[in-house]
Nucleic acid binder design. Structure first.
Lengths: 357, 357
DNA sequence: ATTAGCACTCAGAGAGCGAGAGTGCCAGTG
DNA sequence: CACTGGCACTCTCGCTCTCTGAGTGCTAAT
């Protein structure tokens, strides 16, 4: 059966009301809301049909209706009004982003926190796995037993590590190693750093003390970490405010699930690749999320890298509000990090006269 | 009235039982537990006196007793047996620590996670505020518009930042700035980096483009961050398994409180400085923690710096078990980071022959 | 096609009741 | 005199029962 325009309006009204109150919605409430000028009896009939069609559900005979996953799906795809953020809200987001995002390596953490406090839902954020490579090595000689390795990745993140040796090395050796790494170890992914490569690098710089091995281990670790992506989970406490998670066991289960970064890292696999995606209740593959919805926004992190930021909530979630906020945040991140934009650091350049403090 | 040896034994038994079951403890249960060879009636009398003395409380007339904060205090100070960890447990802790602790800047995060999963309670971890200074600057010239600033702090952490310029600079300028910073900006705390100092540094290197300002801003930011300390909160979900936090509102309140790093950073102020400290329920100054206990262990992070790691739970908490685990973790951290120990990086040195992968 | 009216259903709140755990006290005992 | 057994008393918890009211589905009228 084709779904009439009026049915859509009713479905929409039911969902809006249910999102707001978390209680089953009755025909009378819809009639009185004034969106449609028809009596409650007519609405009752329409609702009965919507139920038969699978868009609504009835917790029990004498209760109102609640939307089914299929109902939410229709709502998200067609009915939901693309909510516009108020000027206040965009301003607030901009501010938090500027304020919080200081260092790139803590970006995920901060983005998660900002998004959680804005949406009032728990948030997972991750940098999607990519084939990371190192574009540049610098070895800084500190003293005879100490040097710092600084590497720059293709995503422009800079990592470093202080290395202490149980023996002393000459500065010339350090710079020899540095140049060898810059020619032999740049632009390759982690799996390309083979023992053979390390061997030949050792021969190339005449290293018999395992220095090459130390540096390459750090390179491998760094690449591995970036390649796997990093996942964070923020704002767990917001979950407890949702009526559907007042059962501590339920809340515990889902929090536990989301705390495990393994699970979050698997998230990209289930997204189709769109900029904004909504996964409703049972559409989730994970058993633990069958009663929850996830809204995922994708952002461009430059150099073909993508990040994901997702909001988790009950199926009765403020889809339109969250979608709007999430899109805005993702856009902001893309602007900040994306390939088209200036690299990080640029926008925080303080020229003379701007008083730091 | 002086508290007799027998009363102490009874109190101890009550607390042990209450910690295990979370239910009020009756005289019969104590009598049957067999720790004392006296009848339940005698125990009843003793318990009545313990109640009068303020060590026990009665939820209502016909229920068993639960320990009062004062009772817990006595228990923690005198009665509690210093639990020893099994070999299995220490092994497990060692493993997780070695496995997880890769990079110093993510240390807090990882330590928190490990401790939370070991104790099965939520954990807060923080690096205590200290007067951080920078001991060394390195500026790496990448291209005409780009350079990397690498700074090493007195706690041996290394931070870096990639800086892009809207104009080009010469390599010689970069190295000039580097040497100026290494002479003028090392060994001083954040508040000593004044506009005047920056001015004179600019004159010293002939910088008219605000480069000095960019670098000093980064220095100030880094120092501020380290000086303030960093706080993390892990394992929130464990809270929900405690019967006393099955009320979602309560759980939400405390999670919220602990999520705010401001609150955690205030924690050191209330500790007296011992290695291990137990703060019981109402002894907490924060209203939100009046029903919870906190066990805090201090560890040496080298260079007069101290870190704190704390476990939060209901007043009915497994004090002895948590204390033992926490002490062990703190000791491990002290060994890893402490002034006496080799600096980080050392223990992960892989000499030739250790196959990376 | 829509609406007003009405009988019917059923979850949830509240009252009432009984069981059981635990207490306090007293009188008896070694 | 310290301890114990016994007993009456108290109070929470869980149970059932009832009642209320929101909401439905159907029917007859417009």
């Amino acid at each position: 059966m084709e779904i009439s325009e009026r049915k859509k309006k009713i479905l929409s009204a039911v969902i809006d009301a249910y999102i707001a109150t978390a209680e089953p919605v009755g025909s009378k409430a819809i009639a009185e809301s004034g969106v449609l000028d028809i009596s409650s009896a007519t609405i009752r009939n329409e609702m009965a049909e919507l139920t038969a069609m699978g868009y609504l559900e009835q917790p029990h005979t004498s209760a109102g209706r609640i939307p089914s996953p299929q109902g939410y799906r229709l709502y998200v795809n067609e009915l939901m009004e693309r909510q516009r953020l108020s000027l206040d809200e965009t301003e607030q987001i901009n501010q938090s982003m500027n304020l919080k995002i200081q260092q790139l390596d803590k970006l995920m953490n901060d983005v998660g926190r900002v998004a959680a406090s804005l949406t009032q839902y728990p948030v997972v954020a991750l940098a999607a796995p990519v084939a990371a490579t190192i574009t540049r090595y610098d070895l800084i000689y500190v003293d005879a037993n100490t040097f710092i390795v600084v590497v720059m990745l293709n995503d422009k993140a800079v990592h470093n590590k202080l290395i202490h040796l149980p023996f002393s090395v000459e500065q010339s050796m350090i710079s020899r190693i540095s140049s060898v790494f810059n020619t032999m170890f740049t632009g390759i992914t982690e799996d390309k750093i083979t023992p053979e490569l390390i061997d030949s690098a050792e021969r190339a710089c005449g290293d018999t003390m395992g220095l090459v091995s130390v540096v390459s281990t750090f390179a491998i670790e760094t690449l591995k970490e970036t390649t796997h992506g990093e996942a964070v989970f923020s704002g767990a406490s917001h979950l407890l405010r949702q009526p559907e998670f007042r059962d501590p066991d339920k809340a515990h289960e889902i929090m536990n699930y989301l705390s495990d970064s393994e699970h979050i890292l698997g998230l990209p696999a289930i997204t189709s690749g769109g900029d904004l995606e909504v996964i409703i209740g049972p559409e989730n593959v994970a058993e633990e999320l069958k009663d929850s919805s996830v809204i995922i926004a994708r952002y461009d992190a430059g150099d073909n890298m993508q990040g994901l930021i997702g909001v988790v909530g009950p199926t009765r979630m403020d889809y339109s509000g969250v979608a709007a906020k999430l899109s805005y945040i993702a856009e902001g991140l893309s602007r900040l990090l994306g390939s088209a934009a200036a690299p990080p650091g640029f926008e925080k350049l303080q020229l003379k006269g701007d008083e730091p403090k």
